[in-house]
């Protein structure tokens, strides 16, 4: 070997080592990133038989849980998740339990579950969006930071969130919706309805309820409901308006309380006693059979015929502007023009 050749051979390891190091680092980096990448990851698709009388519980830390129903006596679970997450399905005679496990960090799984319509359902988690559609039995959905949409349900239908919007449609039975910082919309529902939020609006549409109890602190309430004789309805807000829409042939007694707000009605209500701001005032409609309490500390309370209130459009309960009304009068009992009925002479 020539001296030049020896020098070249001596240089070769010094050139190869850095190159090898770079290649190894790149490979290691790529290997480390693969499991965390959103990518296709892993999927689970499993169908299990469902015993009569069983119930379903799903626990998911984050992601989506969408449950639909079918006419088969089995339950199909399709889940998308990363390779580090596994889906655990326990099936006993009385309960089907689905939960996700992660070897590292938070388990984020998107579930699409198809279940028999009769199967009672319970879903919980910290961050999941929860959607249940078509259930004909009890539904319970609890999340901290996610929206909940339940279409259907019977018996006990419960939705709880902290900062998620809640929508419940076409439920029957005892319906309860609780959130803190978002709105609630309940539609096409009959039975007992309880809804509570702190910073959010509440919208009730096409309600045929025997008992309604809804309250918010910073939000409006819009309630469109029929009032069968004996129904009991309580609507309360601190810092918002209340708009109650009932058919003109309704029989109801409205007990209205407000501290600094106004009251307006375009229904043929009759005042019992003398209306006074800051005091209870009673109005009757028809035979007065249903019992309705409307309370707003500082907002306007309105009783309306159907068709005289703009339908809220847009994104739902939060979309206040489209439902805003131009009042022909400006005060509690101020004689009103147009179709408004004066609430009566008021002592201030």
């Amino acid at each position: 070997m020539s001296p030049n050749g020896e020098r070249a051979a001596a240089r070769r390891p010094r050139q190869v080592l850095p190159a090898l190091t770079v290649v190894l680092l790149c490979a290691a980096s790529a290997f480390a990133q693969t499991p965390a990448a959103a990518g296709p990851g892993a999927t689970t698709d499993k169908t299990v038989p469902v015993a009569k009388g069983s119930r379903l519980t799903v626990s998911n830390d984050a992601g989506e849980v969408v449950i639909k129903t079918w006419n088969q006596e089995s339950l199909r679970v399709r889940a998308s998740h990363s390779d580090r997450v596994s889906v655990d399905i326990q099936n006993t005679a009385s309960i089907i339990s689905i939960r996700s496990r992660s070897t590292q960090g938070r388990a984020t799984v998107d579930y699409e579950i198809t279940a028999p319509a009769w199967l009672p359902i319970k879903v919980s988690g910290q961050f999941p969006y929860i959607g249940v559609e078509g259930s004909q039995n009890e539904v319970s959905a609890e999340t901290v930071r996610g929206d909940i949409v339940i279409k259907g349900g019977s018996g006990s239908v419960t939705a709880k969130s902290i900062h998620g919007e809640i929508i419940i449609e076409d439920a029957r039975g005892r319906v309860s919706a609780t959130t803190v910082n978002e709105g609630i919309r309940i539609a096409g529902t009959t039975g007992e309805i309880v809804a509570e939020t702190t910073n959010g609006d509440i919208v009730l549409e096409r309600i045929g309820a025997g008992m309604v109890d809804v309250s918010t602190v910073n939000g409006d309430v819009r309630a469109e409901t029929t009032l069968p004789a004996g129904a009991k309805v309580r609507v309360e807000t601190h810092n918002g308006d209340i708009t109650m829409i009932v058919p003109e042939n309704t029989g109801a007694t409205f007990t209205v309380r407000t501290h600094s707000g106004d009251f307006h009605s375009n229904l043929p209500t009759k005042t019992v006693g003398e209306p006074r701001r800051g005091r209870r005032t009673i109005y009757t409609l028809g035979d007065g059979g249903a019992d309705v309490e409307l309370q707003s500390f500082g907002g306007t309370i309105r009783l309306r015929r159907p068709g005289t209130v703009p339908t809220p459009g847009g994104k739902g309960p939060k979309d206040k502007e489209k439902g805003k009304l131009e009042e022909p009068g400006d005060g509690f009992g101020t004689p009103l023009s147009g179709s408004e009925q004066p609430a009566g002479a008021v002592k201030r």
């Binding site: 930071r145 902290i162 900062h163 803190v180 602190v217």
Partner: peptide, 19 residues
């Protein structure tokens, strides 16, 4: 608790305190 959850709870408590 998630920081956003804390923020939401504190904002709601303030709203109630104002009421």
């Amino acid at each position: 608790l998630d920081p956003e959850t804390i923020r939401v709870i504190e904002a709601s408590l303030r709203s109630i305190d104002e009421a």
